[in-house]
Amino acid sequence: MENLTSSSTSSLDSTSPNSGRLISSTVLGLCCALGLPGNIAVLVVILPVLVVILRRSSRRPNFTLCLMLNLASSDVLCLATVPVWIYTLLHGWTLGRAACKLATFLLYLSLYANVLTVTLLGVQRYLQVLYPQMWNRLGRKGEAVLLLALWGLACALTAPAVATRDVRDGELKCQRHTGSDAERVAVLLLETLLGFVVPFSVLVTSYCCLHRRVNQTALFSSAKLTRLVTSVVVAFFILWIPVHIVNVVDIAGIVLQTSWPEASAALLRHRSAAARVVRTFTFFNSCLDPFLYAFASRRIREQPKSSSRGDSRMQVTNI
């Protein structure tokens, strides 16, 4: 995620060509214009349904519905910061040190919450379909604790980004400043491992196990479900892996500075060029999410039946 504010906001530097900054700001503006209404629509559609369900004390709300709401909320938070980054692209960072840290915190919080929510969708689907009794033991309070823990973990994961992001005297950049190359490498590795490798591994493992197990039963009868599951994994992979590939290139460039200075310079140069392209991918992911995770399911408003067998079948076709 280093590219998100180091290259998409602070690399938002004055040395970038005006045309490049205009193109980037235009793309970000389109993401915001399309994504904010889409995600707000998800909140408007899902929130009233969730409120009605919660008022029925005899019925437990569909946790997938809660996760859709959580995903839309994190996307709204992410896209709400876009005007700040567009302004910075065009005028540099003139908002001060505190605003730099606050904007960084909000951006990283939304991105980590987004990734963790998608990951929890995979884990929850796996457990609800294959081990419904285990999941049901959580209860409403357990599910609420899961959501609170998700946002708490997202807050904790933002700490390295906020701690290292600053505005230096005389600079119009809100960018990362580390005490050493080793510290920079450590932060980049942490972001790549916790922001992509671990969540994606959990997501793929959950869906692969689910597909293998469910495909052997009569429960797996919806081609639409297959498309939805595939879209979740493919969209997450396509839109996030370029960002972390750039992180890996950055790490390689730093590590090779002493032993292979020419190769290091070339890698860092290509990294800077690539970062200008991939920085918008995560914002586009937030723009795309409402279509993939909410509107793709026609039966999102339906709730599981009271019987355990009916509950399992509904969750298979509706989650």
Rank of each mutant, 00 (worst) to 15 (best):
E143R: 14
A154N: 08
T205L: 14
L147D: 00
K173F: 02
A161Q: 08
L150A: 09
E191N: 14
G170F: 04
A182K: 14
L157V: 02
A154V: 06
G152R: 05
A182I: 07
C209D: 09
E183G: 04
G179P: 01
Y131L: 12
V187A: 09
V145W: 10
V202L: 15
L150T: 13
V197C: 12
T158I: 03
G195F: 02
L153H: 08
P199H: 06
Q175L: 01
Y207T: 08
C155Q: 00
L150Q: 13
P199T: 04
G195A: 10
G179H: 12
H177S: 09
C209M: 12
T164R: 14
R165A: 11
R176I: 12
L138V: 00
D169E: 15
N136R: 15
T192W: 01
C174F: 03
C155G: 06
A186I: 00
Y207E: 14
A149V: 14
C209I: 03
W151V: 10
A144G: 07
G142S: 11
P160G: 09
N136T: 05
L138Y: 09
S201E: 09
S206W: 04
T205S: 14
L146C: 15
P160Y: 01
R184M: 12
Q128N: 13
T178H: 14
R137A: 12
E183H: 07
D181R: 05
F200Y: 15
F196A: 10
V197Y: 03
T158A: 04
S201F: 10
D166M: 07
Y207K: 08
V185F: 08
K173S: 07
A163N: 07
L157Y: 06
L130K: 11
K141N: 12
V198P: 02
V185N: 08
S180C: 09
V204W: 06
A154W: 02
A186Q: 10
S180H: 07
V129T: 14
C209K: 14
E171D: 08
M134H: 11
L138K: 11
C155K: 01
D169S: 08
V204Q: 09
A163I: 06
R165Y: 00
E183W: 01
L146H: 05
T192C: 05
K141S: 14
P132Y: 10
H177T: 07
L190T: 11
E143W: 02
R165C: 08
V197E: 11
R168N: 07
L153M: 15
Y131N: 15
T178N: 12
G142V: 07
A144K: 11
E191I: 03
E143G: 08
A186R: 14
N136Y: 04
G139W: 03
L210D: 05
V204G: 03
T205M: 13
A144P: 00
T205P: 00
S180M: 04
R137S: 07
A159E: 03
S201P: 04
R176M: 10
A149P: 05
F200K: 00
L203V: 10
G139C: 09
P132S: 11
C155E: 01
G179W: 02
A159Q: 03
L146I: 13
L190E: 06
L203T: 13
V145M: 13
L193W: 10
L150E: 08
G170V: 05
V167H: 00
Y131T: 13
L157A: 04
R184T: 07
K173E: 05
L193I: 15
C155Y: 00
L150K: 12
L153V: 15
Y207S: 11
V187Q: 12
D169L: 02
